[in-house]
Design a binder for these strands. Structure first.
Length: 838
RNA sequence: GCCGAGAUGGCGGAAUUGGUAGACGCGUAGGUCUCAAAAACCUAUGAAGGCAACUUCAUGAGGGUUCGAUUCCCUCUCCCGGCACCA
């Protein structure tokens, strides 16, 4: 019998070379016939930033998970598109350049080369002929082209205003990149700064960005988070007028039924300036108001948050008329009212809002109850002005609406009345802001804009795209864009556009690059257009997108916006405008100590070392076996060895089985029913589990199969016929591609291996006949407790009476039935008998 | 505070149109092989009681619905993710 030792390094190196030479999955033609297109399968992994530290075990999980999908779907006969690329622009390479002086172009290239080698070593079956990198001019040329299309439609614009500024990264940040007032990247305190910046008008798609979610198969929490981020909220805007000048002050509220309880109005400091109300402030209050405004604008975002409990404000001395009852109430400025929520003006109803209550207490403002509650103690407290309450109740002090249900009839009637009277209307507000895309950084795609001597912005002419990133720059951060230091950049602009013309010095947020890469995959080498409309129509949307939960808000929102825009411009034939039909998230691989892996904690597992010790197959199968794909899971070094043991065992048993056919004429084992059953059960289990990404249970099934196989192992008789051996090998192919390929090659002696690679084979079919057993095990319960088991002929399972009378007569049942009477008998077909006795 | 997800042996986890809780793997104990070790294999392994057959308890806590609940409903506790002075 043969040498049973499996030399994982030799075997894996051998197949890496052979696969590379045969370009197994590369260079697929993307134009499909209509019939083929029905079977298309576009699999996408969120392309990685090629960091200098190389591949992490955390990268292995999603890549492997999708690779298994790709291999499995190919074996099912699907047309699989599984591309790869690099999100290569970004801060780390630039920061490294600042430190070392090495050009980001160089470090990025080196990092990509490292990643590519490591990914290939894992046998991820990408189509490398479509590989892209966002820092390549042939890629960012089209990023710039999309910018120009947005500009031409008025969806890219320059705006001046307060922006988030990270003093450490020396750049502005999008709202989405500020986490708890800190820079998402370096944790520095973010400050507010006035700057003229470029924005994309994502808000013009805000409704569709919510509604489109109904058409995609995404995890519900993810959808919910997107919806919350956009923050659509329906409310009523109500016009109050200044008593003197009748100037309109519009408030927005979701609780308009409490409008009779308004005892003051509060306006955000920014809004106060914007409406130029300071001129109307009575002379005796002017200096006080000005002092408050000055200190309010000095506060950073963070300071405003710290002040949460201690509400500050100032009386403007102006009075406002409540349109519902003509009452005059004071107007205050307070920074607890936010400029970008609603209209920036709030009606103060201290009896029914905690913040208004705190403010009213502090400044001695009136408190007026307009909703009465059933709980008398609570009602008394609200009436006495001891505490505010928001809840279900009956309207009081509200003129003709008294006695109506506050959240029902009252709310409805009052809205109708105010709208009819002409001082209110329904208004939907959103939390989503336009997307700020300017970055004062070097390593990104230049914004394709130039300025004439008068300072007017013009698009760079299309024939000048790609608008190349200059290379002669000083990386040292100065608070200004590094591109300013490029001599070549200035000369280029003057040469092409004329004397006195200047370039835009800012580059684009890298999220712009990654918002359309899945479209570029479909035309990776196209020099004429960003993508081919017909090819896009064939392959979009992506069938399965696997990304980390950290991308839920930013990347997905931006990508969906781009897709919808390109659809509207006629570049993309995709009615839904939804690029990702189905999405799932991978969890995090934690260190053996259950904590997030990090160098400082010393709990980092290096994938290269696992490959060296056990092989890439073991690494792949182990990571898939750890638990559900979406869960965070701790690494267990012992369990890796267990998976290696399982794979070696499977290899040993199958090589032995193949060798027996070479050894001479042996008989087939007499009683191998259990093994055949298990084999067909495993085929069925994998066929069901793999498309659902339930890899942990699929692998458990293969383990069960190998356990039965091993138990019966014999050198004297055959356990499997030739077809069964090859089917078994095919089952392993998506999960352990190296070992399966090696076994498949060995099985060539059986005369059945039809293809040059097992990965080009078709998926095995299971036979129902093996899954049905002659007898079925029934559970016998008494009062719901399991007391007995019964093996009953499967074909006679429908005969309820026979089963019940048999159960009643069982000797072993008598101790449960003696002295009792049967009240009820339950039989669930083929599963359970339950006797209810008293 | 609001939105969302979750809690099952010593550990990772399996099982839900309600029907044998703990598949599979790790760990642990005992054994086979060996001069010995490693490797490999075999057996046992939720807890408690019992010589045993077996019995009772057990899926974060408490209640409910049901012949029967890890699964459905209500209340609570704890942990995780996100948002948050959102009017």
């Amino acid at each position: 019998m043969p040498d049973q030792k499996y030399d994982h390094l030799a075997v894996e190196e051998k197949w890496l070379q052979k696969w590379e030479a045969s370009q197994l999955f590369c260079g697929g033609d993307l134009s499909l016939s209509e019939a083929e297109a029905k079977d298309k399968e576009y699999l996408l992994y969120a392309f990685a930033y090629p960091s200098g530290s190389g591949l992490h075990v955390g990268h292995v999980e999603p890549k492997t998970a999708l690779d298994i999908q790709a291999r499995f779907k190919r074996m099912l006969g699907k047309k699989v598109f599984f591309p790869v690329g690099w999100d290569a622009f970004g801060l780390p390479a630039e920061n490294y350049a600042i430190k070392t002086g090495i050009h980001p172009k160089q470090t990025t290239k080196t990092a990509i080369d490292t990643f590519r080698g490591q990914v290939k070593r894992l046998a991820i079956s990408y189509d490398w002929s479509k590989e892209i990198a966002t820092n390549h001019p042939e890629y960012y040329r089209w990023t710039q082209w999309i910018f120009q299309k947005l500009y031409q439609k008025g969806l890219a614009y320059q705006g001046e205003g307060k922006v988030n500024w990270c003093p450490s990264c020396q750049t502005v940040l999008a709202n989405e990149q500020v986490v708890n007032g800190l820079c998402e990247r370096c944790d520095s305190q973010v400050i507010q700064k006035d700057l003229k910046q470029w924005y994309f008008k994502i808000t013009s798609y805000q409704d569709e960005l919510i509604d489109g979610l109904e058409q995609v198969d995404w995890p519900n929490p993810t959808k919910q988070q997107q919806i919350n981020w956009i923050g659509r909220s329906k409310g009523l805007s109500i016009d109050f007028n200044l008593a003197e000048t009748k100037q309109k002050l519009t408030v927005w509220t979701k609780f308009h039924e409490t409008v009779f309880g308004t005892t003051f109005l509060v306006i955000a400091p920014e809004k106060f300036l914007e409406m130029q109300l300071e001129e109307q402030v009575p002379t005796d209050r002017k200096s006080t108001v000005q002092a408050y405004l000055d200190q309010a604008f000095k506060k950073t975002e963070e300071e405003r948050k710290i002040g949460e409990k201690d509400k500050t404000g100032v009386d403007t001395g102006l009075l406002v008329i409540n349109p519902v009852n003509g009452q005059r109430v004071p107007l205050y400025i307070a920074d607890y009212v936010l400029m970008n929520v609603g209209t920036g003006i709030v009606m103060g109803v201290p009896a029914h809002d905690e913040r208004d209550f705190a403010f009213a207490k502090k400044y001695g403002l009136g408190i007026k109850q307009v909703v009465s509650y059933a709980d008398q103690a609570l009602n008394d407290a609200v009436a006495k002005g001891e505490k505010p309450f928001e809840g279900e109740g009956v309207l009081v002090n509200s003129a003709q609406f008294d006695g109506l249900d506050a959240w029902g009839e009252g709310k409805k009637a009052m809205a109708e009345w105010m709208i009819e009277a002409g001082f209110a209307k329904w208004q939907t507000t959103y939390k989503l802001r336009d997307w700020l895309i300017s970055r004062q950084r070097y390593w990104g795609a230049p914004i394709p804009v130039v300025y004439d001597p008068e300072g007017q912005a013009h698009l760079v002419k299309e024939e000048h795209l790609p608008w190349l990133l200059p290379e002669d720059v000083d990386f040292k951060p100065t608070g200004e864009s590094p591109l300013r230091s490029s001599k070549e950049f200035h000369e280029r602009v003057e040469r092409l556009y004329g004397k006195g013309w200047t370039p835009e010095y800012d580059t684009m947020d890298t999220f712009v690059d990654s918002s359309w890469y899945y479209l570029r995959y479909c035309a990776a080498r196209d020099h004429e257009q960003f993508a081919d409309k017909k090819v896009l129509a064939t392959w979009m949307p992506v069938n399965l997108y696997l990304i980390g939960p950290e991308h839920i808000v930013l990347h997905l929102l931006y990508s969906r916006f781009f897709t919808k825009f390109l659809r509207d411009e006629g570049y993309l034939d995709l009615p839904s405008g939804e690029p990702f039909a189905k999405m799932r998230h991978q969890g995090m691989i934690l260190g053996p100590d259950g904590r997030k892996m990090s160098k400082s904690k010393g709990n980092v597992i290096n994938p290269d070392e696992i490959i060296k010790e056990y092989g890439a197959d073991t690494l792949r199968v182990y990571e898939m076996f750890m638990g559900p794909l979406e869960a965070d899971k701790p690494w267990n070094p012992r369990a890796v060895a267990g998976v290696a043991r399982f794979l070696r065992k499977t290899y040993r048993l199958l090589t032995l089985e193949i060798a027996k056919y070479q050894a001479g004429s042996l008989k087939m084992a007499e009683n191998r029913q259990e093994l055949l059953q298990k084999l067909h059960w495993a085929i069925q289990k994998l066929t069901v589990d793999l498309p659902e990404l339930k890899y942990n249970t699929a692998i458990a099934a293969l383990m069960e199969l190998s356990n039965v196989f091993e138990k019966m192992s014999s050198e004297q008789v055959h356990l499997l016929d030739k077809t069964e051996i090859v089917d078994y090998i095919k089952l392993l192919a998506p999960l352990a591609p190296f070992m399966a390929e090696e076994l498949y090659e060995q099985s060539r002696v059986l005369g059945l291996a039809a293809q040059k690679s097992v990965h080009l084979e078709s998926w095995p079919k299971f036979d129902q006949a093996f899954l049905l057993e002659a007898n079925t095990n029934l559970i016998i319960q008494v009062n719901g407790k399991v007391r007995e088991q019964l093996s009953w002929p499967t074909e006679a399972l429908a005969d309820k009476e026979a089963i019940l009378s048999h159960v009643r007569g069982l000797a072993s049942m008598q101790k449960w039935l003696a002295d009792k009477s049967i009240k009820k008998e339950i039989y669930v077909l083929g599963k359970v008998v339950n006797l209810v006795v008293v």
